[in-house]
Simulated assay, not measured.
Amino acid sequence: MRKIIFLCCIAVLFTVSAYSQILEPVKWSYSVKRTSASTATVFIKATIDKGWHLYSQVARTGGPTPTAFSFQSSKVFDLIGKTIEPKPITMFEPVFFMEIGYFESTAIFRQKVKLKGKNVTVKGKVEYMACNDKMCLPPTEREFSIHIK
Score class of each variant (00 low, 15 high):
Ser74Asn: 14
Gly117Phe: 07
Lys27Asp: 00
Ile146Leu: 10
Ile148Asn: 09
Ile4Ser: 07
Asp133Gly: 11
Lys134Leu: 14
Lys45His: 01
Ala107His: 12
Val26Pro: 02
Lys3Ala: 12
Tyr102Asn: 00
Phe96Val: 11
Asp133Met: 08
Phe144Cys: 09
Ser70Asp: 10
Cys9Trp: 02
Lys75Asp: 14
Trp28Thr: 03
Lys87Pro: 05
Ile100Tyr: 02
Gly124Arg: 12
Met1Gly: 15
Arg34Trp: 02
Phe6Asn: 05
Ser31Phe: 02
Cys136Pro: 13
Lys33Ser: 06
Glu104Arg: 15
Phe43Ile: 04
Asn119Val: 05
Trp52Val: 03
Val16Arg: 00
Ile48Asn: 00
Ile4Val: 15
Ile48Thr: 01
Cys9Asp: 05
Glu99Phe: 01
Glu85Cys: 09
Val126Ile: 15
Lys87Glu: 14
Ser70Gly: 05
Phe43Leu: 08
Ser17Cys: 10
Gly63Gln: 10
Thr121Cys: 10
Val126Gln: 02
Lys82His: 13
Leu23Tyr: 03
Lys118Ala: 06
Ser38Asp: 15
Arg2Met: 09
Tyr128Gly: 00
Val95Gln: 09
Glu99Leu: 07
Thr90Ser: 11
Asp78Gly: 00
Ser74Arg: 05
Pro86Gly: 07
Gly117Ser: 15
Lys116Met: 09
Glu93Phe: 08
Val58Ile: 15
Glu143Leu: 12
Gly81Val: 03
Ala130Leu: 01
Tyr102Cys: 03
Ile48Pro: 01
Lys27Arg: 12
Ser31His: 03
Ser38His: 12
Gln72Asn: 15
Leu54Ile: 10
Cys9Glu: 06
Glu93Val: 11
Gly62Tyr: 04
Thr140Gln: 06
Ser145Thr: 05
Leu137His: 11
Phe97Pro: 00
Ile48Ala: 00
Pro86Cys: 10
Val32Asp: 01
Asn119Tyr: 04
Ser31Asn: 06
Ile84Arg: 13
Val16Trp: 03
Gly124Phe: 11
Arg34Val: 03
Val120His: 14
Tyr30Val: 08
Gln111Val: 01
Phe96Gly: 01
Thr41Pro: 05
Lys125Trp: 02
Phe43His: 08
Ala40Tyr: 13
Ala107Asp: 07
Ser36Pro: 04
Arg2Ala: 12
Asp49Met: 02
Val113Ala: 01
Val26Thr: 04
Pro25Gly: 06
Pro88Asn: 09
Ile148Lys: 07
Lys125Tyr: 07
Val126Lys: 04
Ile89Gln: 05
Arg142Asp: 13
Ala37Gln: 10
Gln111Asn: 06
Ile44Ala: 14
Gly81Phe: 08
Pro88Tyr: 05
Lys134Gly: 02
Lys27Val: 06
Met98His: 08
Asn132Met: 03
Ser73Leu: 07
Ser105Ile: 12
His53Cys: 11
Leu13Met: 11
Asn132His: 06
Lys116Glu: 07
Asp133Cys: 08
Met98Gln: 15
Lys50Met: 05
Ile100Leu: 08
Tyr19Glu: 03
Ser38Glu: 14
Gly63Asn: 09
Phe92Glu: 04
